[in-house]
Amino acid sequence: MFKLFNSSLVKKYAMAISGLFLILFLFQHFTINLTSVFSEKVFNSISHFMGNNPIVQFILQPILIFGVVFHFVMGMVLDYQNRKSRSVKYYYVKGSSNSSWMSRNMILSGIVVLLFMFLHFYDFWIPEMNYKYVEVNPLDPDRYYFEMTHKFESPIRVSLYSFSFLFLGLHLLHGFNSSFQSVGVNNKYILSIRGLTKLFAIGVPLGFVFIALFHFTNSI
């Protein structure tokens, strides 16, 4: 199994598949968050379901955490190996002449997203785990909307979230269609995939920023 990961192409598939999995999760997260703009009741009921369903909690959540950790660790390993493959650097490189900033700086945008995730875990996941499994509080299906909107009362947090979403968008702008190329898809559908990449990489982070700003302005 580990020998298989010696192959540069297997590592490439692993990055692509874990990335596509995280994209799916991101879309699911976004649609759930979006409901908070339209209906407190719907948001509460979906959050309650996600927070208490045993399949989500004890099967999907560990898979998601593994996916996140795997994607980041593999990204770091690949970046380290790639840097090692050219030990003497060029005196002058004109990278902008042949590739996008996003494609050359995936590790930077990835690290910003990783730091954001620490903040996000600190804000929501750790208190949630504490509420349910440490303090073992009684079930309250109506608490989620308040807990979420309360966090977005802080302009500093909203600014940090918005800044992170910008980098998430930059990461997705390269990562989305690059994942398809990595698993061997570069055919007649590639133009549609590139279009979908732009739509997703701009639309979803902008949507997250909108949700954060919406709750912030409502709190003023």
């Binding site: 590592k11 490439k12 190996q81 990278g95 990595s182």
Partner: peptide, 18 residues
Amino acid sequence: MVKQMDDEGFGNCTNTGA
């Protein structure tokens, strides 16, 4: 060919397109 490429110490492709 891919094995030989890896053994030679080339880096991994990140689809920059350069």
